[in-house]
Write a protein that binds this DNA or RNA. Structure first.
Lengths: 136, 136
DNA sequence: GTTATATTTGCAACAGCGTTGCAAATCCTT
DNA sequence: AAGGATTTGCAACGCTGTTGCAAATATAAC
């Protein structure tokens, strides 16, 4: 709870109920959530616009990050502390069965060689498969 | 031209102008295209619905594949021949400057270890950076 | 604690992507 | 050239995300 207040202060964001609740929801979720899932968990007490604006603020400050899935679906999750925005390596896992999205790692991994002329800046790896819970 | 006809036949798709033109456009593009870019290149001679349905057919037959970008944007590109749908490794490159998307490779690459319980099926790597043309 | 200013919220409206239902047009077979 | 099956266009819709503006709330100053 205090860490959420701290997070808001560090990023110069005022402590409003909506912001606090969204951060609480995302940190307890375990998986990445879509905007509608977030709003659902908050009991539809906040307007769609407000949630989107709040998420956008958090994204700008790198408090959260977004994961884009096939078909254009977007999920949001807490950013593991102090991610450097450039030169970053992200691994996410999408479960084909429960469609849950997990943040696996934000640490460097081996990357394939690119053709001459392409200068990489960051890497996003999305792994599809069966997650922990769905593997019986 | 004949290879496009062959591609349609192999996949049991009738040879309609719309299908032929979309495949021609995608094979000559060099980069992945969005639905609106495709329709633009076809001079808005086809309905949005028709283009979407055509793309969906091509996706189902694995004639083309889609790449999902940050913010939910989707681009479409030809599938390099005979991609096996499972156990596949895809590398795509997004240029931060010209926002072009390139298919780099569909061949296996080193992948990071996943936590216990996660069974990977396929890997999609999206690299952000500066592309060939934009590197002066 | 009260006032004033800046920020945040809700509402209404809008834009874009992708889908469905249905009727008209086109394709493939014979 | 005629038949039925497939494809296309149109209208309408749903969902995600955005903007403008007025009301509500937070922050700072007194």
């Amino acid at each position: 709870m205090n860490d959420i207040y701290a997070l808001l202060e560090e990023n110069n964001l005022s402590r409003t109920p909506c912001r606090v609740e969204i951060l609480k929801t995302l940190s307890h979720a375990g998986v990445a959530l879509s905007e509608s899932e977030i709003r659902d968990k908050l009991g539809y007490n906040y307007d769609r616009t407000t949630v989107y604006r709040t998420l956008r603020n958090f994204l700008n400050q790198n408090v959260i990050h977004s994961i884009s899935l096939e078909g254009g679906e977007v999920r949001y999750a807490m950013t593991p502390h102090k991610d450097k925005p450039h030169g970053s390596h992200h691994v996410h896992f999408y479960c084909n069965q429960c469609s849950g999205v997990y943040c696996i790692s934000h640490k460097p991994f081996d990357t394939p060689q690119l053709p001459a002329g392409f200068s990489p800046e960051n890497y996003d790896l999305l792994v599809h498969g069966k997650c922990k819970k769905c593997t019986v």
